[in-house]
Structure formats: C-alpha cells, structure tokens
Nucleic acid binder design. Structure first.
Lengths: 252, 252
DNA sequence: AAGTCGATATCGCCA
DNA sequence: TGGCGATGTCGACTT
C-alpha cells in the first residue's frame, strides 16, 4: 500500500481519518464524528452552495475545498482567491445529513441569523484531523508599534512634541496620541501604518473638531496625521482643513 | 482496503494524489508536482511559519492546514478563526524544498516584496487536487442592490426625489446617487447596506462639501445617508452638519 | 501601478 | 452585546 499507484480508500487512526471517494453514507458518518469530536474536517469535492443571512447567495456546481473548524467556522474555497467564496463565522453550528442520497453540510448561527448549505454531488476526499496549536502569532509592524516608536522618541513627530495620553477619549472617539507642542498647543495625532486615503484625513478632522469643541473655543488644536505617505486627495483634504502630515513608518 | 481501520498511505490517480505521513522526500516531490501542474495542494501537519513583507510575523510550532492554490494564493489555517493565521495573496510564487530533512514551502511576491516560509516538523497528510470550478457566485443584498431599488422607486428616498446620475464624480470621490428634490435642490445620496458609524457620515460630509464648492456658493446641497440604521455618534454627526438619514435596506 | 471604496468584511478592544 | 477602529485587510473597478 505504499506504491504511488495504489488505490487506497481509507485510513483511520487516533488523530486522523481519511476516505477517498467515500460513499455518502460513510461520508455522513465521518463528518458527523469529526464535528462531534471537535476535529478539523476537510472535504474536497464537487458541490453547490447556498447562503442566506446578512445577504444571500447561490453558487452552482464546482470543485471546492470545504473546511469545518471546531470553533464553528466554515470555509468554502475555490481554486482561486485568498478569500473563501462562501463561509460561516466562528460560533456557528455545523450539521451533516443525507439529502436524496447526497451529503449535505449545513452551518447555522443566530444574531444575526445565517445559514450556509453545502451539498456534494461527488466527494473526492474527506479527512478529519485532531488539531492542536499551542503557539500564538507574533506580529510586528502594526500601528501599535508605530505608537510605541513615537512614545519612545516624540521628537519624530516634531521638536518639542510631548505626548500626554494615548487612546484619549473624545466625543468623536479615542485619539491615538494626545499631546502638546513646544508652545503648549494641543496636538492630536492620528497614526496609520500605511499610506492613507481620504478616510484617515476625515477621521483626524473629526477628532480635531471634537477636541476644539471640548476645549474653550479660542484654543488652538493642531491635528497631525502620521503615516508613511498620503494620497493626493487626502493631502488636499488635510491642507484644506489646516491639518498636518508627518511621514513615518512603523518599525519592524 | 475499504475497512475503517485500514492503514492506507498513498493514492494517486489522474486528478488526486494523497499521502498519509509521507517522508519529506516524497512530500517534496508531491508538492513540487502539484505546484507545477496547477493543482490545489493541501498539507496538514505540525509546522512553523515566518512572514516578512508589509509587516513581519513569527508563528511557533502547531498543527495547521496549509493550502496552496494554482493562482498563487497560500493559506495557513489553525483550528480557530475564519481568517488564516498567515497567508500570501494571489500572484505569489510557491516553491518547495528540503531544509535539514524537513519540507519547507516558500511563497514570494514582488510589489510589495513579501515572503512566507512554512517549515514542517511532521506531515500528517498531503493531498493535491485537480480542481475545476465553472460557476460564479450570485450574491444579492449588496449596496448595488440597494441602489437599484432606489433607482426603480425614487420615492423611497422621499416624495419627489429624482435621481440624475450614479457614481457622479466630485473632487471628493464618486457620489453613489446624485439627484434633486421636488424643489430643485441638489441631493447627494450615500448608500450603505448595513448600520453605519461615523465613517459613513464623514464620507457623506466630504461629498456635500465638494459639491457645494463645485456649484455656485449660494446653492443648497442636501446630503442624505441611506442605510438600515445609524449609530448614535453617527446620528449626531449627521445632525451637526445638517445631513439627513433615510432608513432603507437592500432587497434580497 | 495607484486611488478609491465596498464587504455576508473579520477581529480585537472596551463600554 | 453593540460601538468603534485596525487590518500584512481583500477585491473590484477606474484612471
């Protein structure tokens, strides 16, 4: 059973189950057991998919990879694209059944009510895995890293800038970095880890407006957008509203 | 070879290859062939992952499902979450190699330069699939559907509303629906398929500002946000800037 | 290639 | 649970 041309159809041990072209009855049993046991269930085959919930969709027949996770996630992947063509978020409940002799996998959740239904014409392969992942992702180069960089070296914003608070609350939301310049004027800093468009300029504008209303009307509030770069349109928006830009990247 | 307790280790036909706990050399050969042939490659095993590009990340050992797509997509899925813990977008180039006797899969792309490296301590299963998907997703309930609904029945916005253009260009971007009310005043409509926050109010505000500057200064420009509902803060933002809200949902 | 914005966005944090 | 904003957002469309 080790040759390249073998026609293996089944394998089952403590941690892994595999079936090649299983009949629907065996597939049903295996998927049900996998869901029950908290396994990662992976099915590849020709299927149709329906979704109804926040929106509604229909997907005709095609070969797809379906993944059911023990946390209630369901993914339907085609041979293209990073995003699944259909999915169900974590917290959903998966259920398998036979409909007209075909395997159907349904995943539901409430609030909002959503239903995903996958029906297999053919099953080329079905696997279940007992998966254990003890490691956490360590990511650098985020907006939080940019903030730390500025707090450690406030002069990167400008000579004499003094940070007073992070996530300072305003009527418009929490300001990334709140401080004052060398002349005692209030400074609102909005951080972006990458090149920004008009939305970020609008966000900074809302914060500055809110703080200006909050302080006495004659106070000068400066708004500084800190990002690697800005688009033309965002730059004009900043200029129009008296906001400033400082080019800076997150450390990595 | 059909019993549940069989110990199959290999299967290979025209459209599918499967190996259970393959040795690294066989795994290398299979992954390389799969990439070369434009197959969907699926690996489950204990691995470590490194990423460097727009940001940088490290992920320690754990059981994960790795998917390589023929369009250059790479996905690393843990047993939790809808999103992959690491990934590479479509257009990347996958490459397999042996490093210190272990299978390593690397995926790279340029512009921006990004590199994803996956190294397997153990491989529990390795499959390649010849996948064909002829169907397109048909989705309803999007913002485009909401726009169609309004164009067919403009009175949903208000009595006497007349749409004149969609995606009308302004200095601030394209307005969803541009029209006028029963008194001939310009109306800017911004559509959202779901409950909106401050960002959408800011977006509408930018469009109205731009059109007011574009038209003669004394022209009255109304801004209407159309969505199922608004948050408190967004509602206050609309009110403060003289913008209006109409509750409406996309059809499904 | 870059800009802009939608998305069944998802995710994490915090009230 | 809802609000809010970040994301290695992705993806589609336009310039």
């Amino acid at each position: 059973m080790t040759g390249d041309d073998d026609r293996a159809t089944s394998c089952d041990d403590d941690r892994t189950t595999i079936h090649v072209e299983p009949d629907p009855r065996l597939a049903l049993e295996t998927v049900r057991s996998g869901i029950e046991d908290g396994a990662l269930v992976v099915v590849f085959g020709r299927c149709r998919v329906e979704y109804e919930g926040r929106a509604a969709s229909e997907l005709g027949p095609g070969d797809r990879l379906v993944v059911l996770k023990p946390d209630g996630t369901a993914l339907v992947h085609t041979d293209e694209g990073q995003q699944p063509v259909n999915w169900q978020p974590p917290g959903s409940s998966h259920e398998a059944s036979l409909v007209e002799g075909e395997l159907r996998i349904e995943s539901r959740r409430e609030s909002p009510t959503e239903r995903l239904s996958i029906r297999f014409e053919t099953i080329r392969q079905l696997s279940t895995f007992d998966a254990a992942d003890g490691s956490e992702l360590a990511l650098v180069g985020t907006e939080a890293d940019l903030r730390e960089r500025i707090l450690e070296e406030p002069g990167l914003i400008e000579e004499g800038f003094r940070p007073l608070a992070t996530e300072r609350d305003t009527a418009a939301g929490a300001v990334d970095v709140y401080g004052e310049d060398d002349r005692g004027r209030t400074v609102i800093v909005e951080l972006k880890r990458r090149r920004v468009g008009p939305d970020a300029a609008g966000q900074l504008r809302r914060y500055v407006d809110a703080v200006e209303r909050e302080l006495h009307a004659d106070a000068t509030v400066r708004g500084i957008l800190v990002a690697p770069s800005v688009t033309d349109r965002a730059g004009r928006l900043l200029e129009r509203h008296g906001l400033e830009f400082v080019a800076l990247e997150p450390t990595m």
